[in-house]
């Protein structure tokens, strides 16, 4: 069958909302786009363990420590589900990790910002996970089957992440003056970076068009960003805090909140590797990977010995 026909059949399937499965024919670009996006997503989960992970030892109560441990562990699990989904497209996890460590593969820039206070654990949960969830809910309906299934599982588990973040901030917002100040300061730092999580404006995003056509993505960056602003602008009232944007205002005509201009220079600067923690995050992942090499090798060597012993016994 000529490629054009295969592509036509493929697109018809997509249009009819039939999921694409690992062994189905797919355009090479579809496969590549999915590998890129799923592995980026996986890397983001795994690198995302670091800023919060660094507060596990300092969590201010045993309950918060347990919640944080469970949450950061979930992120590891989510990274694993996503790596597995990408592996069905024929790329090994080792390859993906080596792309991450060499800087070839990207991860969400948000994790290149430092987590400086306990309030950041709340703000990350509420804002960063909140932004991620909008994206993830959309991806539960993405066209590639294994990716969609991983996202359904992830969304189920994620539902407590944003809630615990908001609740942690709520306690601070009702606490001492010092806690309130900590809460506001943290929101100030995380607000703009979390808006940047949705990626460049639609007018400047290179990957969006084809991804929409293939239903890998189902909403544009700007649509999701607006949805996020509308949600957070209401929720912050409950906290009695403010978002650091003087232009944030309900627009009765659009039935949406208007908001100020994002500092895109900062966004691109962090994407290029110049964020406050880019180096530190990658170094931490490299160290874990390198320090773990002998452990992984030992387990393989032991497994091989066991199989040999078994075979000898059988012979």
């Amino acid at each position: 069958m000529p490629v054009q026909d295969l592509e036509k059949i493929f697109q018809e399937k997509i249009d009819q909302e039939i999921k694409i499965e690992p062994r189905d024919w797919m355009p090479e670009a579809y496969r590549k786009t999915n590998i890129r996006q799923i592995s980026q997503h996986a890397h983001s989960e795994v690198v995302g363990m670091l800023p919060e992970g660094n507060w596990i030892s300092r969590a201010p109560s045993l309950k918060r420590k347990a919640i944080l441990l469970a949450k950061v562990q979930d992120e590891g699990g989510h990274g694993l589900y996503l790596y597995s989904a990408a592996e069905t497209l024929g790329m090994s996890r080792d390859e993906m990790i080596s792309d991450l460590l060499s800087g070839k593969a990207k991860y969400s820039s948000i994790f290149n910002y430092p987590a400086l206070t306990w309030a950041d654990m709340g703000a990350v949960g509420w804002l960063v996970d909140g932004a991620a969830i909008l994206n993830q809910v959309m991806l539960c309906r993405t066209s590639y089957g294994p990716y969609a299934r991983a996202m359904v599982r992830i969304c189920k588990e994620e539902s407590f992440h944003q809630r615990q973040g908001f609740e942690a901030l709520l306690v601070l917002s009702r606490g001492t003056d010092a806690q309130k100040a900590m809460c506001q300061e943290s929101i100030n730092r995380w607000w703009w970076p979390s808006l940047m999580m949705f990626g460049p404006k639609d007018s400047e995003s290179t990957n969006s068009d084809q991804s929409m056509k293939w239903k890998i993505k189902r909403k544009t960056n700007d649509e999701l960003r607006q949805q996020f602003v509308d949600m957070i602008a209401e929720q912050i009232k409950v906290l009695g805090m403010r978002l650091p944007d003087d232009q944030l205002k309900w627009n009765e005509e659009r039935k949406h909140y208007d908001f100020g201009e994002i500092n895109w220079d900062e966004f691109w600067n962090v994407v290029k590797g110049n964020g406050p923690c880019n180096k530190q995050r990658l170094d931490a992942r490299k160290k874990a990977h390198d320090d773990g090499a002998w452990v992984r090798a030992a387990a393989l060597a032991y497994a091989a010995k066991k199989i040999n012993t078994k075979n000898e016994k059988a012979a």
């Binding site: 596990i56 950061v72 160290k287």
Partner: peptide
């Protein structure tokens, strides 16, 4: 054990040691 979270030798074992950490934390509580 919690110090390993995010730094384990492979994701599967990172998750495993964190589970143990959570169990012990629960006992302590």
């Amino acid at each position: 054990n919690g110090e390993w979270c995010g730094h384990g030798p492979i994701l599967e074992q990172d998750i495993a040691i964190t589970n143990i950490s959570l169990d012990l934390l629960g006992q302590a509580r």
